[in-house]
Computed example of a mutant assay.
Amino acid sequence: MTRVTRTRRLSLPDGYHFRATLRSLLVVRYDPCGTLTDTDFWLSARTPEGPGSLHLARAGAELTATGHGPGADWLVDRADAFAGLRDDVSDFPALAAAHPLVARLARTFPGVRYPASGQVFHRLIRAILEQKVTGIEAHRAYRSMMKHFGEPAPGPAELLLPPDPEAVAATPYWTFHPFGVEQRRTQALLRAALVAARLERCVDSAEATRRLTAVPGIGPWTAAEVVRTAFGDADAVSVGDFHIPNTVAWGLAGEARGTDARMLELLEPFRGHRGRVCDLLAMGGISAPKFGPRMPIRSFAKF
């Protein structure tokens, strides 16, 4: 049996939303590295102190964090960050008041917080796989990759550990083809794996963004997707997204289509929380009118 090194109890703020806060740490529906219900969350991780798994259990206004394996202390020490309790929203209501829709959404979803996992490479894998494909394709590739590289994680939840970057870096690109990942994304994954140790040592979102975007194949969109979850950066905007500029333009200005430049212009009054505004629009079901065909779901493994 894996030794549990420590248990920690945390108090939750009024209205805290457990599931909506933690869901960004996992691939929806099924993730070999974690599980989530309304009251329980499990996540495996490769920490600086070794492999481990974290269990967060909610009971009313209290959260119990339990760590398993060599990385347990590191995970339990960061349990409040994983749970989004380090996310400072104290100045957001005043900013949100500048726009009636944003103000209403802020009142509707006050308990959703930004987790800060401190896990850069694991989140980067997902972000690279999500480049320029549908969510279904990306999540299918992610699950296949986790199962291929995964090792059993400590703890009773029967999770797999995220891939070891060294193992990924040493893998020929054609191994990823059956996962449904073409050469372009595979090369970005391999480059990222080579510098994964340096990425994990980044002290904040700004440093991580600089280092990430210096890697060929990783642009502002991918970097923002990573730092929003790994560092809890509520200001990170996914520039280059297919849908978000239109959503922001429609929600904030009633314009059916928007560019990245227009999106950033409309989000500027919310600086410090620009990514939070984008997420609130999504949570509120705000979407621009749709024109034209949907992006097809493809299978690169069959090419």
Rank of each mutant, 00 (worst) to 15 (best):
R123S: 13
I125P: 02
F109T: 02
M145L: 15
A153T: 15
V120L: 09
A153L: 05
M145C: 07
G155R: 08
A196G: 05
L189P: 13
D164E: 11
A170K: 03
R185T: 03
A138E: 02
S117I: 06
S117M: 10
R191H: 07
G118N: 05
G135P: 12
V120D: 02
P152H: 06
T186D: 08
Q183P: 08
R198F: 01
G135Y: 09
G150D: 03
A157S: 09
S144G: 14
G180W: 01
L124V: 01
A127R: 05
Q131C: 10
H148V: 09
R185E: 04
Q187H: 13
R198A: 14
Y114S: 08
P110M: 14
P165N: 03
P178D: 07
F179E: 05
H122Y: 14
M146S: 11
P154E: 15
A157Q: 13
G118F: 09
A169T: 12
R107E: 15
R185S: 00
L129V: 12
A197C: 06
A188D: 08
H122G: 10
P115V: 10
P156G: 12
A138H: 05
T186W: 12
P115G: 14
A196P: 06
T134V: 02
V133Y: 00
A192T: 06
P172Y: 00
R126W: 01
V120A: 02
R123V: 14
R191N: 03
I136K: 08
T108M: 07
P178T: 01
A197N: 06
P165D: 02
S117T: 04
A141Y: 00
G180C: 00
A141M: 01
A153P: 05
F176Y: 15
L129S: 01
F149R: 09
T171N: 00
Y114T: 09
P172F: 04
E151T: 07
G118L: 04
A153M: 04
W174A: 09
A169E: 07
A153Q: 04
P165L: 04
A141S: 10
G150N: 11
L159P: 06
R113T: 06
A192K: 08
E166V: 11
V181Y: 07
P156S: 12
R184E: 15
L189V: 10
P154G: 15
P165M: 04
P163G: 12
V120H: 02
A157F: 13
T108R: 12
A141W: 00
M145K: 13
L159C: 02
G118W: 08
Y173V: 15
I125Q: 01
H122C: 09
S117D: 03
P172G: 14
D164I: 10
E158H: 15
T134N: 12
P172M: 06
L189R: 05
K132L: 13
V181W: 05
R113C: 11
Y142C: 06
P154V: 07
T175P: 03
V133S: 10
P154Q: 15
L160E: 07
P115W: 02
H122E: 11
P172I: 05
H177K: 12
T186H: 13
D164S: 15
P163L: 03
V195P: 03
V112Q: 14
P115T: 12
S144R: 15
